[in-house]
Design a protein around this nucleic acid. Structure first.
Length: 912
RNA sequence: GGGCGCAUAGCUCAGCGGUGGAGCAUCGGCUUUACAAGCCGGGGGUCACAGGUUCAAAUCCUGUUGCGCCUACCA
């Protein structure tokens, strides 16, 4: 038998087994098999990103996949990465500026894209490597990238079909424009933020308007009042002179826009720079006057004085000018919300622009119905509401981006302005056959290709075998923060193109935050890198990384405060276990390093239990044991029957937990079983037998190996590495598989459930704990043997295990009786219907009296409560019979306890 | 403005209708031959607050307070 190291060292072990699994090709799922498929398509991480704690939750998918694979399913976890248009382009542009001092325009489109691809190749491998470090059992042969040839073909196919169906159109609309990224953004890519701003009242001739954005008055097209507002209604139809700009604008009545109670009751209308005003403009046929250029500067449409100014500067100048002319009536603080670019934090301006859009409503309808009909379910259920709300209020989706990195829009224009939309690059205009074609400069929103991901990765638009086998997938597992980005759009596209939902269950996990509940961010310096948890990091390494990441000083200080001694290495399994144990539904996951440490200790605990077993297996032959077990030829002790039974309970409960995505329950169940039952009791109990030469030795060896082996399989999905290492070390029967990965997941064996053994064992534990407790309370040295009398209603049951009790409690003379005879110099305690009396040598009568009196008081109080409840007629009449019965038994027990305590008190008094 | 969620031991969290739990921390005792990353024992909670429903409420309902998140066009 192999001797194990004294403590578990994850570093070597993890690397070794991951390589082994890859070599054996265990992660690969073949479409041609009779096994029932189980599919998870990874929500692809950003290809240039690096793994953060959010990604670490990919382990949840790995837990599901490993578990189902062990259950015999044809489990496919399809991995890949996302090209992340804006984010990636930004990174490469920044690099270009830093290294060569050039802009992408100086480089040209073709050369720039070459650079992005180079960068992608270099950095794309990194995040995949990091996923592997987490132990991800992805089918790497099927790895995809959103800009792969196949997926690009899927994007074109989808675009062209949607266009032909009238679901994609091009139009001039107000869109969100980021002047730094220089592109349009969809509504979802804009983050709203509350700001303390001002509300200014400005005189427009005889009217006073209220606005938070005075600079946009340069583009005003009207002033709106409420049509039923007596103050202004007669003015509707007349015109007013727009200050600062020598222009007359109409006064219009609009009941939708104007709230009579707010501000002055009159609103300036700027259709080209505000989404509401745009709607008003449509209703009243107002001209669209855009006063901002793409850089976010005031343009030619404004008076010369303002041209070229930024929005912020223009506001100052406008206000100053109004002040000078006496037109600024009032200024007061006012909260407003502004939109910022999700990627670069720049203020986003609503801007008039020609863009491509997806008509969302017709796509949303089937996506709503599918969920209503339960074809796709949400876990936790509450997210369904959010999904429905968004789907029911969906707006058209702006899909064109003024970027270079991405799928170029498959649309060509000829000199006459004809539009040709094609799957293959066309040679001539579809309308006039002109060969002078220019492709649309823009690319598609990254999320457009992501929406196709659940089927494009499986070969669509070809009707592949993979697609037939693995679509729809079983679970979509992701953070709730991208419910709309991914889940909703995948639902729409999946239903549209595949006529089937893309996944049966959407499991939305919580966001990983720091241990105080704050979102992790570089600015705050509370980011915990999963790789640092796995491999450990010194304080120097942490601060150095933060400095390189250009984190502010305050962040560095925070790092020093939070991790004064760095982060100790915990290994992947401990991190995985922590995430599983903390992944309770409906709450953010606060990653506490203390918990990680606790679970690292758990690794060591199982390790040492195995080590102990290995030291005592001798010539143990698993085949012989298995034969005898099957033949019922083994004589199992109470402890044996008990641990086997407890194992079944655990197996059953873990299975149920996993079925219901209750990973924290699964983790805790295994933890409790291994530590509190297997290690603290079973192993302690079997020690003498294991060290003996008796025939029972084979039995306990067999049980121990069986329980350890089963527990390893049970735990494998959560802690794949240590369980593989241990499993490999354990003796196995002839013909066992090469890896724990491909063994069968434990399922409950009802014949091993033994209620009687569990009850008897519970009794024994109660007795042992009571004696130990008494010993501890009276400071009896652990090595000192004591004389103990156990009083119990059923002495025979405990008497059968008297040697065991004697050993576990270090008793000299142990009497197990029905009625105890009071003796001098003894101390006692009561646990349930058990009474423990111990010879204590010298007894401090006064102290003992106080202790017992206190105990009587406490018990009396409890007893009164129970009696009060039982004496209530309504309780006895209405509560279920078993509850009443339980209370009655409790009452009897408490009364018995009191009388015994009082008796003990009396005999104590006689000692005086 | 609307919606959702959360308030339980010093900290991080389970429990969600029938005697309040876990990990970490804490206190006392242990050279017990797997593990001090350990063993044994202990202390610690009017389950945010106020009402209500119920025989019974941490658990269900209503309201209040505090804190999050999502969403929205009040200029």
């Amino acid at each position: 038998m192999r001797e194990l190291e004294k403590s578990y060292d994850p570093v070597v072990v993890e690397e070794k087994w991951y390589r082994f699994w890859l070599e054996k090709n265990y992660f690969h799922a073949d479409a041609a098999t009779h096994k029932v498929p189980y599919t998870i398509v990874i929500p692809p991480p950003n290809v240039t990103g690096s793994l953060h704690m959010g990604h670490a939750l990919y382990v949840i998918q790995d837990i599901l996949i490993r578990w189902r694979r062990m259950q015999g399913r044809n489990a496919l976890w399809l991995p890949g990465t996302d090209h992340a248009g804006i984010a990636t382009q930004m990174v490469v542009e920044r690099l270009l500026a830093a290294r060569e001092g050039k802009t992408r325009h100086q480089l040209g489109r073709e050369e720039f894209l070459k650079r992005v691809w180079e960068w992608k190749t270099k950095s794309g491998g990194r995040i995949i490597e990091q996923l592997k470090t987490l132990g991800a059992s992805c089918d790497w042969q099927r790895e995809r990238f959103t800009m792969d040839e196949g997926l690009t073909r899927a994007v074109r196919e989808a675009f062209v079909r949607l266009y032909e169906e009238g679901l994609i159109y091009r139009a001039e609309r107000l869109i969100n424009w980021c002047s730094r990224c220089f592109t349009a953004l969809s509504d979802l890519e804009v983050e709203h933020q509350e700001l303390e701003g001002h509300l200014w009242h400005i005189r427009y001739g005889e009217l006073v308007v209220a606005t938070t954005r005075p600079e946009t008055m340069l583009g005003d097209a009207a002033v709106a009042v409420h049509p039923e507002d007596d103050r202004f209604s007669k003015m509707i139809g007349s015109r007013v002179k727009l200050p600062l700009v020598d222009r007359e604008i109409p006064i219009i009545g609009d009941a939708i826009l104007v709230d009579r109670e707010f501000g002055t009751g009159a609103v300036k209308v700027t259709p080209a720079h505000d989404f509401n005003d745009f709607e008003v403009g449509q209703r009243h046929q107002l001209p669209l006057l855009s006063i901002l250029d793409a850089q976010g500067k005031i343009n030619q449409n404004a008076p010369e004085k303002y041209r070229g100014l930024s929005v912020a500067d223009a506001r100052k100048v406008v206000l100053a000018e109004l002040q000078a002319q006496g037109l600024l009536v009032e200024e007061k603080p006012h909260a407003l919300s502004v939109g910022r670019c999700q990627r670069c934090d720049t203020l986003v301006e609503p801007t008039l622009s020609v863009q491509w859009f997806v008509k969302a409503e017709p796509l949303a309808k089937p996506a709503i119905e599918a969920v209503e009909q339960g074809e796709t379910k949400f876990v936790p259920e509450s997210w369904q509401k959010t999904y429905m709300h968004w789907m029911n209020n969906i707006k058209d989706w702006c899909i064109s981006r003024q970027l270079w990195w991405g799928h170029r829009i498959p649309v060509w224009y000829c000199e006459s302005g004809h539009v040709t939309v094609a799957r293959q690059d066309p040679a001539a205009c579809g309308t006039c056959q002109s060969t002078e074609l220019k492709q649309d400069e823009d690319v598609l929103d990254t999320w457009f290709s992501s929406a196709l991901w659940p089927f494009s990765t499986l070969g669509w638009p070809d009707d592949t075998r993979d697609l037939k086998t693995f679509y729809p997938s079983n679970v979509m597992e992701t953070g709730y923060d991208i419910l709309f980005f991914w889940v909703a759009r995948m639902m729409m596209m999946g239903l549209h193109f595949m006529k089937k939902v893309p996944f049966r269950t959407v499991f939305l996990h919580a966001i990983v935050v720091d241990e105080h509940g704050d979102k992790m961010s570089k600015v705050k310096g509370n980011v915990i890198d999963p790789l640092d948890v796995i491999h450990g990091a010194t304080l120097e390494a942490l601060t150095k990384k933060a400095e390189e990441g250009l984190s502010p000083k305050s962040a560095l200080d925070n790092i020093k405060k939070s991790f004064p001694t760095g982060i100790p290495a915990a290994g992947t399994d401990a991190l995985r276990f922590t995430l599983a144990a903390q992944a309770a539904q409906g709450r953010n996951i606060r990653l506490a390093l203390g918990r990680v440490e606790g679970y690292r200790h758990f690794c060591n605990k199982i390790w040492n239990a195995t080590r102990f077993a290995m030291m005592n297996l001798g010539e143990f032959a698993p085949d012989i044991f298995a034969d005898r077990l099957a033949a019922g030829a083994l004589e199992l002790s109470l402890a044996d029957r008990w641990i086997l039974s407890r194992l079944q309970r655990t197996v059953q409960a873990v299975d149920e937990a996993l079925e219901n995505f209750r990973f924290n329950d699964a983790a805790n169940l295994i933890y409790q079983f291994v530590w509190s039952e297997l290690c603290d009791w079973y192993i302690e109990i079997i020690k003498p037998t294991l060290l003996s030469e008796t025939p029972a030795r084979l039995t306990v060896q067999g049980c121990l190996v069986h329980v350890l082996e089963t527990a390893c399989r049970l735990l494998h999905p959560i802690m794949p590495f240590i369980t593989e290492e241990i499993w490999q070390a354990l003796p196995k029967a002839e013909g066992a598989p090469d890896s724990i990965m491909i063994t069968l997941y434990p399922s409950v064996e009802m014949r091993l459930v033994d209620e009687m053994a569990e009850r008897q064992m519970a009794r024994l534990q109660q007795a042992v704990t009571a004696i130990r407790s008494l010993r501890a309370e009276y400071n009896i040295a652990p090595s000192k043997k004591v004389d103990v009398t156990l009083q119990t209603p059923d002495p025979a049951a405990l008497d059968a295990e008297r040697d065991l009790i004697a050993r576990l409690c270090r008793t000299e003379n142990l009497a197990i009786v029905k009625e105890v005879v009071p003796k001098a110099r003894t101390v006692m305690t009561i646990s349930g219907d058990l009474q423990v009396t111990m010879d204590a040598g010298v007894v401090d009568v006064a102290a003992e009296t106080t202790r017992i009196e206190k105990e009587i008081g406490k018990t009396h109080k409890e007893q009164e409560q129970v009696t009060a409840r039982l004496s209530k007629e309504s309780f006895v009449a209405r509560a279920p019979a078993d509850v009443v019965e339980k209370e009655r038994m409790r009452q009897t027990e408490l009364l018995g306890k009191i009388s015994r305590l009082e008796e003990s008190l009396r005999s104590l008094q006689q000692l005086r």
